[in-house]
Computed example of a mutant assay.
Amino acid sequence: MSPHVLEPIADAAWPARERKRLGGWRLNATEGFSLRINACWPLGAPDRDPESAIDAVEAFYGQRGLPVRFKLTDGATAPADLADRLERRGYRLHGETLLMTGPVVGVADPEVELSSEPDPAFEALLVASAKGNAADANERLQALGRIPAPARFARLTLDGRTAALGACAVDGEAVGIFGMRTDPGFRRQGLARRVLDSLLAEAGDLGARTAYLQVEDANAPAIALYAARGFSTAYRYRYWSWPARD
């Protein structure tokens, strides 16, 4: 799938609390932690000249006390010179991310429990993975709760502990993979692969044919895991933020 097709699907799958449109520009705002739901996605021409549109985006996030952030996607950013315009204003580049796609092929694991909403054990591991940042954990839990149906939440329990988890959002023939986490005490045991396989098997039963996921360019272990499951990079995106990030 091209970014023009897949980016709107990905936007709908991880919904922000507050959303606004400026023509083809999508403004997402939540609590400020998850970058995708706290950024402007300029996927088409804005409804005004670009400089005025940037002014409007800055006002939108400024009114909410959030950093101003743009998510620029290879092959799907409008106008094409937006990065240059942002750089001239003092924005800085960060957070290069791969959008990987792969086949919806997997075998259900009997030890991976699936549900249509996150249960308390699922939530507990997600909160623990936030490393004490309760606001970040809360934002992600709320975003998971906004995933439109059909959504599935996978949890693998070992030795009485939640060892790994993940979630997926099915939209027609596309399925997005989100929230993959493994308890540090259970890493390097192939648990993420088992969770992923179960999610893909379930998504296939729900009609999905193409899976997608986002992974930071620096996360070599995760990229290797997904590549081994047949995923490859479809395109990349990067964030431009102001005030500039270190």
Rank of each mutant, 00 (worst) to 15 (best):
M1H: 04
S2F: 00
P3E: 03
A10T: 00
A12G: 04
E18Y: 03
R19W: 03
L22C: 12
R26I: 15
R26G: 08
L27G: 04
L27C: 10
A29Y: 03
F33M: 06
S34F: 03
S34L: 10
A45I: 14
R48T: 13
D49T: 14
P50T: 14
E51G: 05
A53N: 02
D55T: 14
A56L: 12
E58L: 06
A59V: 08
A59G: 01
G62Y: 08
Q63T: 01
R64D: 07
R64T: 11
K71Q: 11
L72I: 13
T73I: 04
A78Q: 07
A80V: 03
A83I: 11
A83Y: 01
D84M: 06
E87K: 15
R89E: 02
Y91P: 09
H94Y: 10
T97Y: 08
T97F: 01
L99Y: 06
P110Y: 05
V112N: 05
A121S: 06
E123N: 13
L125C: 07
L126I: 13
V127M: 07
K131P: 00
A135V: 05
A135S: 10
N138G: 11
Q142C: 03
G145P: 09
I147C: 02
P148S: 04
P148R: 01
A149W: 02
A151L: 11
R152A: 12
A154N: 10
R155Q: 03
T157R: 12
T157P: 04
L158V: 10
R161I: 10
A163I: 14
A163Q: 03
A169V: 01
D171P: 00
G176M: 06
R181K: 08
D183I: 12
R188A: 15
Q189E: 15
L191G: 01
L191H: 08
R193A: 14
R193V: 13
L196W: 09
S198N: 06
S198Q: 05
L199C: 13
L200P: 00
A201V: 06
A201D: 00
A203E: 01
D205M: 06
Q214C: 05
D217P: 05
D217L: 13
A218K: 10
A220W: 14
A220C: 08
I223A: 14
I223F: 02
I223C: 13
A224M: 13
Y226S: 09
T233Y: 04
Y239C: 09
Y239L: 04
Y239D: 12
W240M: 15
S241N: 10
W242Q: 07
